[in-house]
Design a protein around this nucleic acid. Sequence first.
DNA 1: TTCTGGCACTCGGATGGTCGGAGTGCCAAG
DNA 2: CTTGGCACTCCGACCATCCGAGTGCCAGAA
Lengths: 344, 344
Amino acid sequence: MAGEVRQLDDRKLAVLRAIVQDYVGTEEPVGSKALVDRHNLGVSPATVRNDMAALEEEGYIHQPHTSAGRIPTDKGYRLFVDKLAEVKPMSAPERRAIRHFLDGAVDLDDVVARTVRLLAQLTRQVAVVQYPSLSRSTVRHIELVALAPAKVMLVLITNTGRVEQRLVDCPGTVGETLLADLRARVNARAAGQRLPDVPGLLDDLPALFEAADRPTVTVVLATLFETLAEQSEERIMLAGTANLTRFGHDFPLTIQPVLEALEEQVVLLRLLGETADAGMTVRIGRENAYEGLNSTSVVSVGYGSGDESVAKLGVIGPTRMDYPGTMGAVRAVARYVGQILAES
Amino acid sequence: MAGEVRQLDDRKLAVLRAIVQDYVGTEEPVGSKALVDRHNLGVSPATVRNDMAALEEEGYIHQPHTSAGRIPTDKGYRLFVDKLAEVKPMSAPERRAIRHFLDGAVDLDDVVARTVRLLAQLTRQVAVVQYPSLSRSTVRHIELVALAPAKVMLVLITNTGRVEQRLVDCPGTVGETLLADLRARVNARAAGQRLPDVPGLLDDLPALFEAADRPTVTVVLATLFETLAEQSEERIMLAGTANLTRFGHDFPLTIQPVLEALEEQVVLLRLLGETADAGMTVRIGRENAYEGLNSTSVVSVGYGSGDESVAKLGVIGPTRMDYPGTMGAVRAVARYVGQILAES
DNA sequence: TTCTGGCACTCGGATGGTCGGAGTGCCAAG
DNA sequence: CTTGGCACTCCGACCATCCGAGTGCCAGAA
């Protein structure tokens, strides 16, 4: 039967690879003749045509209309990425340039800003960088400041250089002694700990204070825990939207939902959230859950100081993108950002 | 001579107004017949044609090609905005909606975020909101935290709810007593003061400390002054880029430089910086210094808590925009944001 | 003077027909 | 299984035509 799962032989795979490469380069459907001319496949166009027919049968490529060349489908790109392409490493000068550019950063905001711009430039696509997430980092310091008799400001500083502050309304006047005591105890236990672990280390704290002070302690701790747990505060930085103009011919239709998606931090966060914890994730076309991005691909990867990923970054481009090059750039940038963060 | 400055009579102005209104509505060059049909000008098309010829002579309108309708020039829009149009006030329900939407904000970030989205929605254009600038606000509290023996963290909290922090490397170990003393004195003098005034109020402070502590005090103060003076930290929030897709037919060409401009915070800041301190500023087409925005108009205005402007906001759209409506929306939003800020 | 109706003219854009070429599928022979 | 040949398809470019909106100008009315 034709329905049986047919193993694609090496030459068919080579043809698919060639189609992807050519199409990415020229943006035009690629025909059998052109293929044979540009890649030395060692066979005739007719043979290639047969292979193409088979590839189309299996759903890897597709014809816009009869008597036109072929275009890879999402499935075709998927196979290409999984089996046919190697991540293209950055050249030594490129790596030096990345390193040098990122080295100039002065603080966390700057690191993220530089990273996202760099990534957009290297890939000529839209770049997205998530701020190092609170949940994976550790506490450097927690500060409590009395602003008014019953108002305390809570400042949380993480090892990634991020600072979060919250105002706390206390049930009654808060003495400086109490505050100092609380501050000392909280820091003694929490400093250096990973954020998600902190609540567990502090939950018996109210019991150590006098009954009169307990409501205040409880409220402050509650706010602290809230801050620690806060996922919604995750921030994202974007760059390279102007690269969208290179998308294609059916322009406004494609670009509008993408622009809309890019404005929704939630969408972007979810997008990056789908990145596997280890290794690079490539989502091609329809594989993206968000409908507006159905004709784009997302290449994303985690990065972090040390060996553990604290946040994600990636790029968004047309499904017809240079996957090996993009993946190389994304990987390289992620690696160097990680190094920078580890150093600071 | 034809070169003499000719006063435009009322009817010509009415014709110009009608042309602008129609063109903004239809996006198509408008001809004499259509004009007479849609606005009851009380004269015949032929008369209108004569007026149009005059208006073109003076440079207020322009013909894409012979035998096409007329399109307003930048100069035409300018006259329209200056003399022919009234700012269109928001309706009561609209005002209520604005108020309600902004009232839900929980902190400064949220206020700005909501404002920018609201503005983008109301005007269906790209909205830009500058964070309340440090330089116009007042000090609510300054906090000093010892992080390490010779490292102090400086936190500046303003009345607009903004928080800035800086790490200070001190020349030697910093005792908690010194820090407490310094903290108390700094706050006593600076709290409630406008940021630019603070350095003047503190410059004799080192003299009040013992010689041994002076280097530390000096360094901390220097960092504080730097933070206060910092203009480059001005931040901007953006929304509505997807509205760019409604720009026009010659699409990618127009939109690309605009997207590029929007990514350059510096450009946007300068753009808003050109806003007059009082009243609304409208920059039309070539009036914009930045070349990429030569086919857009920028409507901007200051906003602030109380009667004084602490920052700017505005929208960017095609020169062919609904000026009265846009100006009304911008003004209304600015007013309500000001109120919100004043309350919090 | 200023406005109006009439008129000849221009020109962009839509419509439709033709044509070439790139590309295909199939087939029979190597 | 591969190859060259061949008939076929169909997109897109090119061109000619045509329609109509819009114009400028002019002579006559108000």
